[in-house]
Structure formats: structure tokens, C-alpha cells
Amino acid sequence: KELVLVLYDYQEKSPREVTVKKGDILTLLNSTNKDAWKVEVDDRQGFIPAAYLKKL
């Protein structure tokens, strides 16, 4: 599985998104959309803007 590093805090703005903190390391589920990547956070799945993430 692929991991990503969170570069900036992000507060979810819709039910399809998830809230993350800078420095979190998350499982990347889908990065086919260049604008928003799907990740898993504490058994929740949701989207975060790709600009907030860096592949490890």
C-alpha cells in the first residue's frame, strides 16, 4: 500500500472529506484525480486536496 505525508492541516468541508493534521502519515487509496486524493484516516475514507499531500 502507498503512504502519503500530510503537509498542512486540513479541515473537512464536506462529508466526503476527512480532517488531517500536518505530519500525519496516511494510507493512499486513490490518486487518479489530480485535485483530490482519497485516503484512509482512522477507519474513515475520504478526500483531501492533493496539494496537501506528498507521496512517500
Rank of each mutant, 00 (worst) to 15 (best):
G46F: 15
L3D: 02
E40H: 06
D42C: 12
N30A: 10
G46W: 13
A51E: 13
L28D: 00
F47Y: 14
E2T: 13
Y10Q: 01
V6A: 06
K54L: 13
A51K: 15
N33Q: 10
I48K: 01
L26V: 13
R44A: 05
T32C: 14
V18H: 04
A50C: 10
K1M: 11
A50G: 07
D43M: 10
Q45I: 14
Q11W: 14
E2A: 12
L7W: 03
L53A: 06
P49G: 04
K21Q: 08
V18Y: 06
N30V: 08
A50T: 09
K38W: 14
T27L: 14
T32Y: 10
E17Y: 07
N30P: 03
A50S: 13
Q45M: 10
L28P: 00
D24C: 09
L53Y: 02
L29M: 06
L3G: 02
E17I: 05
L29V: 11
F47V: 07
L29Y: 04
E12S: 15
Q11Y: 15
K34Y: 11
V41Q: 07
N30F: 07
V6E: 01
D43H: 11
P15E: 11
V4A: 07
T27I: 15
P15H: 10
K21P: 00
E40T: 08
K21H: 10
K54R: 13
I25K: 04
D42N: 14
T19P: 03
T19S: 14
K34M: 13
V4W: 04
K55H: 07
L28H: 01
P15D: 12
K55V: 11
V4R: 01
K1I: 12
K1C: 14
K21V: 06
I25R: 04
P49W: 08
V6F: 01
E2I: 14
E2L: 13
K22D: 01
K38M: 15
L5R: 06
S14C: 10
K21C: 11
K22G: 05
K22I: 04
D24S: 11
L5P: 01
D43F: 10
P49D: 04
L56P: 01
N33A: 09
R16Y: 14
K38Q: 14
Y52L: 10
Q45W: 11
A50N: 04
Y52A: 09
D35Q: 12
D24F: 07
W37T: 00
E12G: 15
K13L: 10
K38A: 09
K38L: 15
E40F: 07
G46T: 10
K34E: 11
I48F: 02
L56M: 09
K22F: 05
P15G: 10
E2S: 12
G23C: 09
W37Y: 05
R44S: 05
V18L: 15
D35C: 15
T19N: 06
Y52S: 04
V41F: 10
G46K: 05
L56D: 01
V41N: 08
D42H: 12
G46Q: 07
R16N: 14
E17G: 15
Y10G: 01
K13Q: 13
L28T: 01
D43S: 12
D35M: 13
V39R: 01
S31Q: 08
G23F: 04
V39G: 00
A51C: 15
D42G: 15
L28K: 01
S31I: 05
P49I: 07
L3S: 06
L29Q: 02
W37P: 00
D24W: 15
F47H: 06
K22A: 13
V20K: 00
K21A: 07
L7D: 01
V4F: 03
K55L: 13
L7T: 03
Q11T: 14
Q45Y: 08
A50W: 05
K54S: 09
R44Y: 07
D24I: 06
W37F: 03
D35Y: 15
L26R: 03
V6P: 01
Q11E: 13
Y52C: 14
V39Q: 01
L29I: 14
K13C: 10
N30W: 08
K55I: 13
P49T: 04
K13A: 10
K21L: 06
Y10M: 02
I25A: 00
V6Y: 01
Q11A: 12
S31E: 10
D42V: 08
N33D: 13
K34H: 11
S14Y: 10
K54A: 10
P49M: 05
L29W: 04
Y8K: 13
K22M: 08
Y52V: 12
K22C: 07
N33T: 07
L5S: 03
F47G: 02
V18I: 15
W37Q: 00
V6G: 00
D43A: 10
K1V: 12
V39L: 03
A50Y: 04
L53R: 01
Q45H: 08
T27E: 06
L56Y: 08
E40S: 10
T32M: 12
D35F: 15
Y8I: 09
Y10H: 04
T32F: 10
K13I: 07
L28F: 03
D9C: 07
E40L: 14
N33Y: 10
V41R: 09
G23R: 03
L28W: 02
V18Q: 03
S31C: 14
D9W: 05
A50L: 05
L26W: 05
G46I: 15
V6C: 06
K38P: 00
F47T: 08
A50D: 02
V20L: 04
R16E: 14
L26N: 01
I48G: 02
A36N: 12
N33L: 09
L5W: 06
V6D: 00
V18G: 02
E12T: 11
L29F: 03
K34C: 14
L5D: 01
V4E: 01
E2V: 14
A50Q: 06
K13S: 10
Q11H: 13
K55Q: 07
L56N: 01
P15L: 09
E12L: 14
A50P: 11
T19V: 04
K55A: 06
A36R: 14
E40C: 14
K54N: 04
S31W: 10
L53T: 01
A50M: 06
R44I: 08
L56S: 02
